[in-house]
Simulated assay, not measured.
Amino acid sequence: MAAASAPIKVDVGTDQLISHAAHFLGKAKKDVVEAAVREYIDKHREEINEGVRAVLSRLDGSSTSSVALLAGLSPEQIDEYGGMPKTS
């Protein structure tokens, strides 16, 4: 089964770099982009993990913390806007 693909948009200069690299490496542009993204993520894995840990530390299991995180607000701001409904 072939993997599904999703389009990405890059600026013209980046597209030219990808095209040149693909041409001279004898690869498809998608293969160059995939390899570059995987290398980038591997190189920055610790930073990514730190970000994940920081987000998870803001979650306390409550609806308020979940909504605040998704909305980009603090729990205090959620309370100022009327808070979350109380559940029994």
Rank of each mutant, 00 (worst) to 15 (best):
P7T: 14
D31I: 04
G13Q: 11
T64K: 15
D60A: 04
S88E: 10
E46P: 03
K29G: 05
M1H: 14
I8V: 15
L70K: 13
K29N: 09
G82A: 11
L17F: 06
A22Q: 10
G26K: 12
K9S: 03
L73E: 04
A21Q: 01
L17P: 03
D42Y: 05
Q77M: 14
K86G: 03
N49L: 13
E34L: 07
I41W: 00
E46L: 07
N49A: 11
N49S: 12
A6M: 08
E46R: 05
D31K: 08
Y81T: 05
S74C: 10
S5N: 03
I8K: 14
Y40L: 02
I8Q: 13
E50L: 08
L17G: 12
A2G: 03
A28R: 10
A4R: 15
A4T: 10
T87N: 12
K30E: 02
L69P: 01
G13F: 08
S88C: 02
S66N: 09
G51M: 12
H44C: 00
H44I: 02
H44E: 01
A36W: 03
H23C: 13
R38D: 07
P75F: 01
E80V: 08
V37Y: 06
K27S: 03
S65T: 01
P7H: 12
L59G: 02
D42S: 07
S62H: 00
K86T: 09
E50G: 10
V10A: 04
R45Q: 11
S63I: 11
S5H: 04
L70Q: 13
A4H: 11
D42Q: 10
F24R: 09
R53P: 07
T64W: 09
G83M: 04
T14C: 14
S65M: 00
H20Y: 08
H44Q: 05
V37G: 00
Q16Y: 11
K86L: 14
F24T: 06
L56K: 14
S66G: 03
F24M: 05
S19R: 12
S66I: 07
L59P: 02
E34V: 04
V33S: 06
Q16F: 13
S74Q: 05
G26R: 13
D11C: 02
V67D: 05
G51K: 10
R53Q: 15
E80F: 08
V37E: 00
A21V: 00
R53C: 14
A36Y: 03
L56T: 08
M84F: 10
Q77N: 13
P85D: 14
Q16M: 14
P85T: 15
E50P: 00
S62Q: 11
M84D: 05
A6L: 14
A71P: 08
E50K: 14
A28V: 01
G51D: 04
